[in-house]
Design a protein around this nucleic acid. Structure first.
Length: 237
DNA sequence: ATGGTAGGTCTCCTA
């Protein structure tokens, strides 16, 4: 992580699945290389963090309409940009209790974002959405047809968020076919590029003219004991 | 409903 930050020097890095209580967050290690940190963690599961060059302001970890002990939400303001880092519930299986929780959760996020856009026209919503927006974001749409991460209700929930006035920054630019951000650890999925694009950077309309690129960096996925996700990088003028 | 991998609360649960 420190190596990646030193190479890419992003202004902001949003993390999901930190799986750390706040007292264990290694903020000193990031401070040493010039990054402030905001975080909302818990033991073993979930957890979100934001690392940034400038001190984050107006840190938000809970939404008024989403009372939840699971640490999946982190909002900060950096410069004149509002960021909302999300670790969307995985949902386990279509039709399960966790699936219902996921859809309800996404609906509440949408309701919150409708208000947030009024206060923060320059708004970025990013993170692990656990939804592949369309079949082009899936290595084999037949295998994944109406399964978790790809089902129509999940995609509709994401579309409703986009319809508030967000763009999927990745699709503002020409991209290679079969571009993914997550590959299962099992079955040599990364080697065979059997992945999904579920990690998104959504930007509000005011930011679209400023956005100069969006790419997925597959390099960290090749390392020893990698995350199963690859970082997505959006750049702005 | 399987298996395959990874990691942690470690012989089950979540992803």
């Amino acid at each position: 992580m420190v190596d990646w930050l030193e190479i890419h020097q992003p202004d902001v890095l949003a993390l999901q699945e930190t799986k750390l209580v706040d007292d264990s967050f290694p903020q000193e290690a990031f401070k040493e290389i010039g990054y402030h940190a905001a975080y909302s963690g818990q033991k073993t599961y979930n957890g979100v963090a934001i690392l940034c060059r400038q001190a984050p302001k107006d840190i938000l970890t809970d939404l008024p309409n989403l009372v939840d002990s699971q640490r999946r939400i982190l909002g900060v303001t950096v410069d004149d940009i509002r960021l909302l880092n999300l670790y969307v519930p995985n949902g386990s299986e279509v039709g399960s209790k966790k699936y219902a929780y996921k859809l309800d959760w996404l609906g509440r996020i949408k309701d919150y974002l409708q208000e947030a856009l009024v206060e923060y026209p320059k708004l970025i919503v990013l993170g692990d959405f656990n939804v592949a927006p369309a079949d082009q974001d899936v290595h084999d749409p037949d295998i994944w047809h109406e399964t978790i991460l790809c089902s129509t209700p999940e995609r509709e929930a994401l579309k409703e968020i986009l319809a508030l006035g967000f763009q999927d920054s990745f699709r503002l630019f020409e991209q290679e076919a079969q571009s993914f951000s997550w590959w299962d650890y099992r079955g040599g999925a990364f080697r065979r590029n059997r992945g999904l694009r579920i990690d998104l950077i959504l930007i509000s309309k005011a930011l679209v003219p400023k956005c100069t690129g969006c790419v997925i960096d597959k390099e960290p996925r090749r390392l020893t004991r990698p995350s199963d996700h690859a970082p997505v990088i959006a750049t702005f003028a």
